[in-house]
Design a protein around this nucleic acid. Structure first.
Lengths: 333, 333
DNA sequence: GTGAAAGCGCTAACAC
DNA sequence: GTGTTAGCGCTTTCAC
């Protein structure tokens, strides 16, 4: 049915070895034979079977990205960055979605174990440090966006602590002293923890006392932002600003506030985190902390590919530069 | 380095054939040996190399989804539906992004040619009917979301003509007679053309004369919605409603209108198309036509897998049910 | 410069 | 019920 290297060899009147040489750009082939082979390839519309090639070469030049959801423009942008870079070095990026289920994640990891892919990037994972370290011993894996405490695995992420510090700092410099914080309940999500720590440090360094009633913690679901707003509005002394550790939460806050007759950017300042595409499409446009998505994607793939080709694995934690972006939701233009 | 079926065989004291039988659930293995093999597998942490397996079986159980962008929740949802279904039948879905470049699309298609995947679903494509028909002769491909005129290729999509008709019908029934239409300039995007046709038919059947000045056509970019709004606002007799063939355009219209002091849902009705996640997060919430994403994903994968396993290819055009959803942007609740 | 042949890891037909 | 072996399509020594 499908045409193989043998067919091409027969058609060109050469051996399969020669065909292989031509296809892989070996120099030790006469121009004349190369021409004949190329003609045969074209005539038969031959496309080499990568299962055979990869089996032989023991590599696939494919990297798998595993993520909790594909409905997050942050991830889309990171993957875009990965692909742009991968393309330049002859790799392909494919992706799979876990829906945050560890069973699904484990299933998808089999593509790594069974050599369907050369490496895996985890954009948030259910694995713990111990499991990751064990995996990293035998396979090439990397974390992106979200590190794992105690994991000695190649990681690329922003400095969440400093980023949250800078966000809070920006709010404080605008005169806010009562700032509500929206985080998540978790002692494993280290980005969330770091963001809370950075936020607290900013208050601290500016001599603002930490008021536990101004902390609302639930999860990343859209509704949680509205619930937080409900809560903050119920306080006798409402905060004048709110910092949410994700844009989606911030957007939910803004919408909920409007329902209550409170205008974000005028009556209350709201700052998110991530700089998802929607931030610019909202009214008001949402202030946030930008993660340099394409950069992160590029870096993690570059480092992972290096690891794939060496025994001396790089398991460092790379930090990329964030940027506070002030827009209408904090009263800026 | 990596452990193979041979190692397991040696460890268990059996032949590789027996190991293979145990792994693939052949019944003709004694419980005792099966136990020994399984023990060996566990002990050595063996995971079969799928390159070898797939090469031999001439299939990979992987389907590739190629799409123009990953930053579109419509696509994310469709892929989610694909994955949920694929999982139940032992297939994996992987995806790749073309950024609407035909060269990138062609490059990614090589994964089909070189047998890295068993089939491909195109979520919008740069190929024309002739090319698709040629491809479909030798490979298993399907279109989803967006058909191609004249392509005899398995396709799953909504009935765009009827869907747009229903959307316009809903606006007309609310009393609107001057309805602006935002489409795109293209004579190849058949969904866009069908939507325009459906829109016109609705006007027609309700005895509303078609006014060419109420048609604005550009592209799917976010900014185009704002430009359209600019244009419509400049008309001496402004339309009372606007139907955009994508939610993003509708959202852009709503935002631009607000900048102009025109409130969507009160001063002007706005209806989009797709029912992307953002529709529910906007203020006002956006009325739209829902495409049953998960259903579409499930159906196209089911049919494609059927095709993979038969010589009698199904190249029908399957239509799935759309649904008009009225929300605040058309003055509904 | 080119061909013959081994072998990547696996499955399946064929023996026994 | 189990082992031997051919071969999937390819790359890469090793000859010549």
């Amino acid at each position: 049915m499908s045409v193989t290297i043998k067919d091409v060899a027969k058609e060109a009147g050469v051996s399969v070895a020669t065909v292989s040489r031509v296809l892989n750009g070996s120099c030790s082939v006469s121009e004349d034979t190369a021409q004949r082979v190329n003609d045969a390839v074209k005539k038969l519309r031959y496309s080499p079977n990568f299962l055979g090639r990869n089996l032989r070469k023991r590599e696939t030049n494919v990297i798998l990205v595993i993520m909790p959801t594909s409905e997050h423009s942050l991830y889309s942008k990171i993957i875009m960055g990965m692909q742009k870079y991968a393309e330049t070095v002859g790799y392909d990026i494919i992706s799979a979605v876990t829906r945050s289920a560890s069973t699904v994640e484990a299933r998808q990891m089999t593509m790594l174990f069974n050599r369907t892919v050369d490496g895996v990037v985890l954009l948030g994972t259910q694995y713990d440090a111990k499991q990751l370290n064990e995996l990293a011993e035998n396979y090439d894996i990397a974390l992106c966006c979200e590190g794992v405490e105690g994991a000695n695995v190649l990681t690329v992420a922003v400095d969440d602590e400093q980023a949250a510090y800078d966000a809070a700092d920006a709010l404080i410099k605008k005169g806010h002293k009562r700032i509500g914080f929206i985080g998540i309940k978790s002692d494993t999500a280290i980005s969330a923890i770091a963001r809370e720590n950075g936020f607290k440090r900013a208050l601290d360094e500016h001599g603002i006392k930490i008021d536990d009633t101004l902390f609302y913690r639930e999860d990343y679901e859209y509704d949680s932002g509205a619930k937080a707003m409900d809560y903050f509005a119920s306080l006798k002394d409402r905060p004048t600003a709110i910092f949410a550790i994700s844009d989606l939460l911030a957007i939910s806050v803004i919408n909920k506030a409007r329902d209550m007759g409170i205008k974000a950017g005028e009556d209350i300042a709201v700052m998110g985190f991530d700089n998802i595409t929607m931030c610019e499409m909202m009214i008001p446009k949402v202030s946030t902390v930008e993660q340099p998505c394409e950069k992160m994607g590029e870096l993690v793939i570059a480092k992972l590919i290096e690891n794939i080709h060496t025994d001396n694995k790089d398991n460092r934690y790379y930090t990329v530069k964030h940027r506070v972006i002030l827009r209408e939701s904090t009263g800026d233009k």
